[in-house]
């Protein structure tokens, strides 16, 4: 434990893998979106990519939040205003971090 964060629980490896995959996808979609904004129109015009991407981002963000909601209910994780949960992907440990 340090001043910024303390451990409040842990998830199973399978649960860890679920949120890790969602986290990776959420980041990848976000950075693809940033790339598309800067790309020349002719490079992306051929595909209905924007619509698909935006829908994908919304769906992934929803699944991501749902995972935290469901796991926090299941495991009864502490929640304090001004703090957020975070996971260590190496161990599956859950921490409460001061923001």
């Amino acid at each position: 434990m340090n001043d910024q964060r303390r451990k409040i629980g842990a998830v199973t490896p399978a649960e860890r893998d679920e949120i890790k995959a969602l986290y990776e996808r959420k980041n990848a979609l976000g950075e693809l979106f940033r790339a598309l904004v800067g790309m020349a129109a002719e490079e992306t015009a051929a595909s209905p990519l924007y619509e698909r991407l935006v829908a994908d981002m919304a769906a992934t963000a929803g699944k991501f939040q749902a995972w935290w909601d469901e796991k926090s209910r299941t495991y009864g994780w502490e929640n304090i205003s001004g703090h957020s949960w975070e996971i260590d992907f190496a161990t599956g440990d859950i921490y409460l971090r001061r923001q």
Partner: peptide, 10 residues
Amino acid sequence: SDYIKLRLYE
């Protein structure tokens, strides 16, 4: 990098 991201997604 942009092309990689785009093609991976497409």
